[in-house]
């Protein structure tokens, strides 16, 4: 409050106008909050339904009057799911595929992003445009060509074939994202390291790599989720029960149209969601944006 308003005699207008304005503001805020809650409910409800169904006995699942929670939760569906054929094989396959995809694509994407962000070469622009442009092609259109190519090299029904396929869409995104992170790191930092005694590679590893860590975390989460949840390519490329991935394994619950084991399906889905959540919880703490603050200027 300025001194003027204190001196001013009987400030009538503000006392009338202010509550009205603040009431309107409060209403707007409440409305937006409601919208936010609604979106949250729409997002969270399927997850809630999946988990709650996994614990319900069969009669409650198939009952015509839906129940929110089961008063007598059961772990039977989890037992069923785990004991279904190929569960552990397929989870292991998924973990291998995802682990290799994430590790390989992070290493390659970092090097490619360094090349794109820190060097100039002929065809650089074209390369970037192609990388983005190819992402825009519908994946469904790529299935058959990829299948043909992979079969020629004996990579159908192998995990390496799937890893290779996943990298074709994980890599461009990761390179693009990491390039953005690298562009934000001032050139002087590597130059300082190089004058200080590092080789060029040393400067990349000791200076750039730690600074781009938040970017690596963000892209690795993307890579993990994309390849863990991928279904269509895995379904088509892998046709041996013991070689399939967890998502394909899940699809076999809806095998017949007459009877679907909803309890088992939901229990399986819940189990398969766990690794993604664990991975996210492990790495999310490392997302410390603004790590480069204080490197240059004030």
């Amino acid at each position: 409050m300025s001194a003027q308003t204190q001196i001013a005699p009987a400030p009538i207008a503000p006392t009338v106008g202010r509550p009205r304005r603040s009431r309107r503001r409060r209403l707007t805020r409440t409305a937006w909050n409601l919208v936010g809650i609604l979106v949250l409910v729409v997002l969270a409800f399927p997850v809630f339904w999946m988990i709650s169904t996994a614990f319900k006995p069969d009669d409650q699942i198939n009952s015509l009057t839906p129940t929110w929670f089961s008063l007598h939760p059961t772990l039977a569906h989890f037992g069923d799911a785990v004991h279904r054929p190929f569960f552990w094989d397929d989870v292991k396959n998924s973990l291998i595929i995802v682990g290799v995809t994430v590790a390989l694509s992070m290493a390659l994407a970092f090097l490619a992003a360094v090349a794109l962000a820190k060097f100039r070469f002929t065809g650089q622009k074209l390369f970037i445009v192609l990388m983005i442009g190819i992402q825009m092609l519908p994946q469904a259109g790529l299935i058959i060509p990829l299948f043909v190519v992979l079969r020629r090299y004996g990579q159908v029904n192998t995990l390496t074939g799937v890893i290779f396929t996943y990298m074709t869409f994980v890599l461009p995104f990761s390179v693009w994202t990491l390039r953005g992170f690298l562009l934000g790191i001032p050139r002087e930092l590597e130059e300082a390291a190089m004058v200080d005694g590092s080789s060029r590679l040393g400067a990349f590893v000791k200076i750039l790599l730690p600074l781009v860590a938040p970017g690596l975390v963000a892209t690795s989460i993307f890579a993990f989720i994309t390849s863990w949840n991928e279904y269509i390519f895995a379904r088509i490329l892998l046709n041996d029960g013991a070689k399939q991935t967890a998502t394909v394994w899940l699809s076999y619950f809806t095998g017949t149209s007459r009877h679907t084991d909803w309890g088992g399906l939901m229990a399986g889905s819940t189990l398969i969601a766990i690794p993604v959540i664990v991975f996210f919880l492990l790495v999310q703490r490392k997302i410390a944006f603004g790590l480069t603050a204080g490197a240059v200027k004030a």
Binding site: L189, V195, A295, V296
Partner: peptide, 15 residues
């Protein structure tokens, strides 16, 4: 080259 450089932006390693 055994020279040291001080940059305009200081170029301190932030991490």
């Amino acid at each position: 080259r055994d020279v040291a450089m001080v940059f305009q932006s200081y170029a301190l390693y932030p991490h």
